[in-house]
Amino acid sequence: MNPQNTTPATDREAVLLEGVTRIHERLQQSLRSLQLDERLARTTGTELPDAAERLDHVIRLTEEAAHRTLDLVDEARAVTGQLLRAPQPALQREQTTEINRLLSEMALAQSYQDLTGQIIRRVVTMVRGTEDALRTLLTAAGVEPQSLPEEWDGRANGPAITKHDAGVSQDDADDLLSGLGL
């Protein structure tokens, strides 16, 4: 006979509670022994909010740089437009100098890449550190981290970059659409 069937409900609860308490203690012990409690506390309290703030700043910097470049493109096009529509030899030197100046400013506007690159590199280091801490925690709990292809969940996810994203090229998209009669 199954002994569980003969155990009163309160006893079963007591056994369950004891089991959960033991798991909890073991987890806390591993956390402490691996100094994961400190690492995860720092990650959650400091590094993740910090990373989010840094990435928001990257969005601002890239947006500003793109607008600055587009402004300069507009200005340069106004000058080339004049050159095309009503070329005036007397103004040619002045106009070419102006276009050169605008091109130099465009080059300068690309310096955002250095700044955002540094910020992103720092966030990447932090993400890897978090991954490392979580991996250690999972291993201590006897769970194997899994690398699985991402299935489409019906939501938009932005550009396909990693092998898990499984994005297709424009040519593939064209083939797919012509197969669907588009």
């Binding site: 489409w152 938009a156 996810n157 932005g158 550009p159 396909a160 994203d165 499984a166 994005g167 297709v168 090229s169 424009q170 593939d172 998209a173 797919l176 659409l177 669907l180 588009l182």
Partner: peptide, 22 residues
């Protein structure tokens, strides 16, 4: 769009999109 999964392109087509640029 940057969305480039096959399922997404099919979904857009089934909902009547006229063209799809990645």
């Amino acid at each position: 769009t940057a969305e480039a999964k096959k399922e997404q392109i099919v979904e857009a087509a089934q909902n009547g999109v006229n063209g799809y640029i990645i």
